[in-house]
Amino acid sequence: MVRAVNPDYTPHHPKWYRRRIPIFWWIRKRAYVKFIARELTSPFVAYAAALLLMQVWALARGGAAYARFLAWLQLGPVLIWHGALLIILLFHTVTWLNLAPKAIVLHVRGRRIPDAAVVAGHYAAWLAVSTFLVWLLVRGW
């Protein structure tokens, strides 16, 4: 080792000290795992939106194309995957609606509406929208 004449000299740029955080930092605590799980619902939201567009596209291409799309939906693995999709999207819905009072703070005549009321309002909206979709799309049981 050759010692530098000036011991303070360094050829490198100085760097701030940064603690290294492992990629799986969130795995040790339940709350963190739940946070990441909540975050990871977003690709499934995008998938559902894309699949809805695919269904609309199949409708537009004609009866035969639509029948092929419906046959694909009836395949076992596709049904299992969509069952998993439903569970993941329900997780998105529940966590999203439960966090609503954190994002929406409502005041009526100077009084803050309690969190529970905000959550209840959102669940009522979910029920209303779901009922509307059943009314719109279901022709028989």
Partner: peptide, 29 residues
């Protein structure tokens, strides 16, 4: 996030689970 939360579960259940399994009848083509 809000639209997805309110709309998607019912849509996924009706269009891609209940209808393919024959639990419900959707409108015709």
């Amino acid at each position: 996030g809000m639209v997805a939360a309110l709309v998607l579960p019912a849509l996924v259940f009706l269009l891609w689970i209940a209808a393919p399994l024959g639990w419900v009848t959707l409108p015709s083509y």
